[in-house]
């Protein structure tokens, strides 16, 4: 049963990623694109954890953690760049 649920969830999150890419392509403003990328990396974390479950290992957890850290830093950096024109003042 878990395997079936895993495949259903994988399909749902992949569909969510496609919707995010639609917003990424459409815009209209740069902030919308950053928001779409932000959502995309969070969905990526979910995909990595699901992949972990599917394989029955916990090897990729560090990948998920690193994605969380890097994604947060890049979102903040790009948002700050839009507001101030520079990242580090």
């Amino acid at each position: 049963m878990i395997t079936t649920a895993l495949y259903i969830t994988l399909a749902m999150i992949c569909l969510a990623a496609v919707l995010n890419v639609f917003r990424l392509a459409r815009g209209p403003d740069a902030t919308d694109r950053i928001l779409a990328l932000d959502t995309l990396y969070i969905n990526g974390i979910a995909l990595v954890i699901l992949f972990d479950l599917l394989l029955g290992t916990r090897l990729y957890l560090e990948v998920a953690l690193l994605m969380a850290v890097m994604g947060f830093v890049s979102t903040v950096a790009t948002a700050k760049y839009l507001k101030r024109g520079s990242v580090i003042e």
Binding site: I8, T9, A11, L19
Partner: peptide, 26 residues
């Protein structure tokens, strides 16, 4: 329980992404 949690997680992600497409302003 694990299956319900998994599907609920997928559902919420999907709704979030759908909101990103559907809602009218930033």
């Amino acid at each position: 329980i694990i299956s319900i949690l998994l599907v609920a997680g997928g559902f919420f992600s999907l709704v979030g992404a759908f909101g990103l497409v559907r809602l009218p302003d930033f």
